[in-house]
Design a protein around this nucleic acid. Structure first.
Lengths: 150, 150
DNA sequence: TCCATTGCTTAGCAATGTAAACTATATCGC
DNA sequence: GCGATATAGTTTACATTGCTAAGCAATGGA
C-alpha cells in the first residue's frame, strides 16, 4: 500500500515545483543564444552519442520530422553539417562543426551560470540536499527502468 | 572563493539532468490533454491567486500578449471565461468554469501519476533524498531572492 | 480638457512539436 | 533477379507557445 501511496504524495509535491523550475529556467536562459533542445543535440553530437536523425530523435524523445526540422535550423546556423551515409544512402550523418563546438561551450556556460546564480542563494545544507538528490534523479531518468516499467 | 566555485559545480551536475527531466516529463504527459502552462494557469485561477491577465502573465513569467493568447485558447476550450472588470473597464476578470475545474483535476492527476510512476522505481533512500531537496527547490525558485539578486 | 499611463488585444514572426503522405534506398523471400 | 515490404528522411499542413511592436480604449492626474 505504502509503496504505492508514497510516490504519489512525493509526486504531488514535486510536480508543481518542477513546473515552476521549467518556466524559470527558460526565462533565465532566454538570452543564451541557443535553446535547451539545440544545446542537448549539440552535446550528443559532440560526445559522439549519435549521428543519425533517427538516433538523435530517439535521444531527444521527439519524432523524426521534428528532428529533421531542428537539424535544418542548426545547419542553417552553421553549427552542424549533414552528409549522406555512404553505407546506407537513405540515411544521413550529422556532424558538429567548429562553430557548433564553440556555440555548445558558450551555450552550456550560459545555462550553467544561470542555474549557478540561483544555487548561489542556497546555504550549504540546501546545496548538500540537492547534491544528494542527483542519484535519485538519475534513477528517475534511467531508460532501462523505463522499458521495464512498461 | 568556494562559495562561488561550489554552486557552479553543482549547477554543472544539475543542468543536464534538469534538461532531460523536462524532455521526459513532456513525453510522459503528452496524453494528459492539457499543457503544463495551461494546467498551471487553471491552478492559479482555481486557488484564486489571480484573475487579471497581467497578474496571470506575471505569475507565469510570460508577456501580456502571450497570456492573452493563452487565455483565448483556454476560453475557446471552455475552461475559462473572460468578463470585463466593472470597476476598471480596461481590464478583464478571468474565471475558471466547471469544465475547467474538471479539466484541472484530470490534468493534474495525469501529471502527478506520470511522475509517481517514475518515482515508484526509487527505493526509500532515494525518495527520501528527493523529499529533502524540496526546500532547496523552493529557495531556488523564491521570487524574493530573485529581486534581491538583481 | 489634455495627455500620460495602464490594460489588453492585434499583427507578424520564430521555434518547437505533431501526423500523414511522399521519395528514395535496402532488404527479404522466392 | 524481382516484386513486395521495410526503413530513413523529408515535405506539408497544422497547433501551441513564446516574442516584439503597434494600436485602442479607459483611467486619472495636472
Amino acid at each position: 500500500m505504502d509503496q504505492i501511496e508514497e510516490p504519489n504524495r512525493l509526486a504531488s509535491e514535486l510536480a508543481p515545483r518542477l513546473a515552476r523550475m521549467i518556466t524559470t529556467l527558460r526565462r533565465d536562459t532566454a538570452s543564451a543564444g541557443i535553446s535547451r533542445v539545440q544545446l542537448t543535440v549539440l552535446g550528443a553530437l559532440r560526445r559522439g552519442e549519435a549521428r543519425r536523425i533517427t538516433e538523435l530523435a530517439e535521444l531527444e524523445q521527439v519524432t523524426q520530422p521534428s528532428m529533421t526540422a531542428l537539424i535544418s535550423r542548426m545547419e542553417r546556423a552553421g553549427w552542424v553539417v549533414r552528409e549522406r551515409d555512404p553505407f546506407d544512402r537513405r540515411g544521413v550523418q550529422v556532424s558538429i562543426t567548429e562553430a557548433g563546438i564553440r556555440q555548445f561551450d558558450a551555450g552550456l556556460s550560459g545555462y550553467v551560470d544561470a542555474l549557478a546564480k540561483r544555487l548561489g542563494r542556497l546555504n550549504s545544507v540546501q546545496r548538500q540536499s540537492l547534491r544528494r538528490a542527483l542519484a535519485a534523479l538519475d534513477a528517475v531518468l534511467d531508460e532501462q527502468g523505463e522499458r521495464l516499467a512498461q
